[in-house]
Write a protein that binds this DNA or RNA. Structure first.
Length: 681
DNA sequence: CAAAACTGCCTTTTT
DNA sequence: GGCAGTTTTG
């Protein structure tokens, strides 16, 4: 903490509402922070303010949803309050959950070294279970079963609750799967992402003294993006709130766009009822966008019924009117947008990374990418395949997880025959049976089968003992805390490179894949050096919790190359001077599935449009095509109902698509020259 | 056990 | 139209 400075000095430059949000430190506080109203500023200043008022660092916990938000917040708090503020708890819901779980695992029958499963691991386990209880002929969709289980977990329903409630065949199957799934996870000492919240809640509820311990510690709680809180997170929070009820939540119900992941908008809508005596502060002064853009945003969101009433006010000028462009087809839409982009860059001298193309679904990016590549215009696509979705990375992690936790059957099963060792599905099933009968882990079954001749051929037994020895040696090294050595040696002895070579015949692809593996190996070495005393499980945890992030932390705008293409979901929290929101059509925005789901889902789609509109600082163009080739078929398309809703508001100007001329080769050259100069200051 | 042929889908995705 | 996941075939 910077000493000798009065708390008041922190308030300079804040508006009245922001000040109130910062200085109302005691009791429940709801900050409704519209888009672009300085939300992050309020949170960071509030933390700094608490510290200056003498609140000890360890009493403060600020919770966010993303690692990136947590990182950013930490940086800004440190910048404001000095290095002494590093000790505050500033993490995501999930990492707070893991921390609690590692500390208190024993209280609920887990051991601290548990592995964390991602969706692919979960799915693999579900498939095994389905096979087991319904046989090979089942037509049940494992993904649907998993989705049901996850939904139940996010609503804080336990297997026994589902078993009790089940009324039809499907519900019975789901309930049985859930029950098996959860007990398998526990036997394997593994948890899934939902467990990172669910298990801490169970732990705190079951053990009053543990709950009391954390409540005594965290006297000031702060939650960012509260509108995205799901049922379990809410319960977690309630358990952490102490008698002083110093809970401050910041959010915007109009930006709740993760309902499909279990976020419940009503949590922010009924906060005042949950915490009587709540102070409500509305931040409505928007420092980001022009009045034209905000007028449209306000008109769009007014059609939603379930929301806190508020209106964004612009602190900027009127700005240019928002355009609504109708094009005859998808190709013309692409052409129009690209031409406007070139216009901005060449005539207006706008840096290309201040332009964004917003899409509803990832698949919409393709035609834009193709054209941009053709014209050699640099761009960055945000989202897309995560580094950790790549097969080779998943394989390597499976090796390490299986070594770190010998009971992790799912991970072992994944790499049992990678590279090919002649241990096929039939053998795997036999091993699984053996493990189940003898109540041992899959790895133990492997070494058992390698020894005794229980129906396994000599060749197979050689392969099995190879696998068994491999992990035996790796475990010894891990126990000796030789983490990076264990990690490397395991892959070498497993001849994992052969698997990569076999899978990728093409030399460049092969090299790229192997480089990714080496990156990961380097990451272990580096991590080991930087975190002396930490466990290997901590390294795996760090990877598991940051899996969503793409290789080159793409959300960092400053690093961006050229213009940005991104989905509306990944655009939340970002801003761009110039925005093109494309495909504003029925069946796309709102998406057909949402329309089928009903009004609540359509309201979420409307919020999605609202989020998109409020990303723009200076200019905004909405485009929509009359026909479009979808799934190989040309189809007629209608403008989005959301456009029709605001058509009469006067905040949109319909402009015709002007076919004009394609940009000439000359234009392209000119652009490239310009771009090169801008990148070399 | 692995390659070839075939089917069915086709939203978003912070951890 | 394209991909991933599955079934069929050698």
């Amino acid at each position: 903490m910077k000493t000798g400075e009065r708390p008041d000095s922190l308030l300079a430059g804040l508006n009245a509402a922001q000040r109130q949000a910062v200085t109302t430190t005691e009791g429940p506080l709801l900050v409704l922070a519209g888009a672009g109203t300085g939300k992050t500023r309020v949170i960071t200043h509030r933390v700094a303010y608490l510290l200056r008022m003498g609140v000890p660092t360890e009493a403060i916990a600020a919770v966010t949803f993303t690692n990136k938000a947590a990182r950013e917040m930490r940086e800004r708090v440190v910048a404001l309050a000095g290095r002494g503020s590093k000790g505050i708890t500033l993490s995501t819901f999930h990492s707070l959950g893991v921390r609690l779980l590692r500390a208190e695992a024993a209280a609920i029958g887990y051991r601290p070294g548990f592995n964390i499963y991602d969706t692919a691991d979960q799915l693999s386990l579900i498939k095994t279970i389905l096979l087991d209880i319904r046989g090979a002929t089942t037509s049940l969709d494992p993904k649907a079963v998993l989705a049901s289980i996850s939904r139940a977990k996010n609503r804080f329903q336990l297997p026994e609750d589902l078993i009790e409630e089940a009324s039809d065949d499907w519900e019975h199957v789901v309930a049985r799967c859930y029950d098996r799934y959860q007990s398998d996870l526990r036997n394997m000492n593994c948890v899934d992402f939902d467990d990172l919240l669910l298990l801490p809640v169970l732990c705190l509820e079951k053990h009053a003294e543990i709950g009391a311990k954390y409540r005594r510690r965290f006297r000031y709680l702060l939650v960012d993006e509260y509108q995205d809180t799901n049922g379990v997170q809410y319960r977690f929070l309630r358990l952490l709130v102490g008698p002083e009820r110093n809970l401050c939540v910041v959010g915007d119900d109009d930006q709740s766009i993760y309902g499909f992941r279990g976020a419940e908008v009503d949590k922010i809508l009924r906060f005042e009822r949950d915490f009587p005596g709540t102070t409500v502060v509305k931040l409505e002064d928007n420092y980001r966008s022009t009045a034209s853009i905000l007028n449209l945003a306000n008109s769009v969101i007014e059609s939603n019924v379930t929301r806190h009433k508020k209106r964004l006010r612009s602190t900027q000028g009127q700005g240019e009117v928002v355009l609504w462009i109708t094009t005859p087809d998808g190709a013309a839409e692409v052409d129009h947008v690209i031409r406007q982009v070139l216009n901005l860059i060449e005539r207006e001298r706008v840096p290309s990374n201040s332009i964004a193309i917003l899409i509803r679904a990832a698949a919409q990016a393709r035609p834009f990418e193709e054209k941009l590549r053709l014209r050699r215009i640099p761009y960055t696509l945000i989202g897309g395949q995560s580094y950790f979705d790549r097969k080779e990375i998943r394989d390597v992690l499976a090796y390490w997880m299986a070594a770190a936790n010998p009971r992790d059957d799912v991970s072992l099963l994944r790499i049992l025959n990678v590279p090919r060792r002649g241990i096929g599905t039939a053998t795997a099933r036999k091993l699984d049976e053996l493990a189940r009968e003898s109540r041992i882990s899959l790895l133990e079954a492997v070494s058992l089968a390698a020894g005794a001749s229980g129906g396994f051929s000599p060749a197979l037994r050689t392969a099995l003992s190879h696998v068994s020895d491999l992990f035996g040696r790796a475990q010894q090294l891990l126990e000796a805390r030789q983490f990076s050595r264990a990690a490397r040696q395991l892959l070498e002895e497993a001849h994992y490179r052969e698997a990569v070579d076999e899978l990728y015949q093409e030399p460049t692809a092969r090299q790229a894949r192997w480089n990714a593996v080496e990156d990961l190996l380097r990451a272990v070495t580096e991590w080991e050096r930087e975190n002396p005393g930490a466990e290997f499980a901590d390294f795996l945890e760090a990877l598991a919790l940051t899996k969503g992030e793409t290789a080159d932390d793409t959300r960092n705008e400053k690093k961006h190359h050229g213009l940005t293409i991104l989905t509306l979901h990944s655009a939340k929290g970002l801003e761009f001077p110039h925005v093109f929101l494309v495909g504003v059509e029925e069946d796309t925005l709102p998406h057909r599935k949402s329309v089928e789901e009903g009004d609540a889902a359509v309201e979420e789609e409307r919020r999605l449009l609202y989020v998109g509109v409020t990303r723009a600082r200076e200019t905004l163009t909405l485009t929509q095509a009359e026909t479009r080739t979808l799934y190989g078929q040309p189809r007629a398309r209608l403008p989005s109902r959301f456009l029709l809703e605001v058509e009469q508001s006067g905040h949109l100007r319909r402009a015709a698509y002007d076919p004009g001329e394609e940009a000439t080769e000359n234009d392209v050259q000119e652009f490239l020259e310009l771009y090169r100069r801008m990148r070399e200051p």
